[in-house]
C-alpha cells in the first residue's frame, strides 16, 4: 500500500523526470537550426557545348566534376568519400586525387587507391530547357547512367 509520503515522493521525482526529458528535447530542438542559409543543391553548370569531349571540369564552388565523354555527360561529387575533403583532377595522371589522405579515383569515380571507403557518387544531371547543364548535388544516381546526347 502506497502511503502519502511515498506517493508525493514518486509524484515529485516523476515530475522532475518529465521536466528533465523536456529540457533535453528543448535543447536538442534549440541547437538544430530550422532555417539554413546554405546554397541550393541544384547547380547550373553552364552551356553544355562548352565542355569538350574527354574533358573533366572541376567547379570548386559547387564541388562537382562535369565529365564530357564521346556520347554524353555525367557529373561526380568532388567530395572525397573518406573524410569530406575536396578532390582535384590531375590531368597528367588521368586521375582524381584527394590532397588530405591520398585517395585516388578514376574519371568514373571508381577508387584506385587510398582510404576512401566508397567511389565518388554520380549525381543527377540533365539539360534544362535553355540548354544549360544542370546538376542536383542531393540526388545520387547509380553509376554509368550518363546523360546521352
Amino acid at each position: 500500500m502506497l502511503d502519502r509520503r511515498d506517493f508525493f515522493t514518486k509524484l515529485g521525482l516523476g515530475s522532475l523526470g518529465i521536466a528533465a526529458a523536456g529540457t533535453i528535447a528543448f535543447y536538442y530542438q534549440y541547437l538544430s537550426p530550422n532555417v539554413l542559409f546554405e546554397p541550393s543543391p541544384i547547380v547550373n553548370a553552364g552551356r553544355a557545348e562548352n565542355y569538350t569531349v574527354g574533358s573533366v571540369t572541376l567547379d570548386v564552388n559547387s564541388a562537382i566534376y562535369l565529365v564530357r565523354i564521346a556520347d554524353g555527360y555525367f557529373s561526380l561529387s568532388a567530395i572525397c568519400t573518406h573524410l569530406g575533403c575536396m578532390t582535384a583532377w590531375k590531368p597528367e595522371l588521368n586521375q582524381i586525387a584527394c590532397p588530405c589522405h591520398g585517395s585516388r579515383f578514376d574519371r568514373e569515380g571508381k577508387k584506385i587507391e587510398g582510404p576512401a571507403p566508397k567511389p565518388l557518387p554520380w549525381l543527377k544531371t540533365w539539360i534544362s530547357d535553355d540548354g544549360d547543364l544542370m546538376v542536383d548535388r542531393s540526388a545520387i544516381i547509380p553509376p554509368f547512367q550518363f546523360l546521352r546526347v
Partner: peptide, 11 residues
C-alpha cells in the same frame, strides 16, 4: 549539431 548545419559555415 556541431556545425549548426550541413556545411562548415557561419554557424
Amino acid at each position: 549539431l556541431l556545425l549548426g548545419g550541413n556545411l562548415v559555415n557561419a554557424n
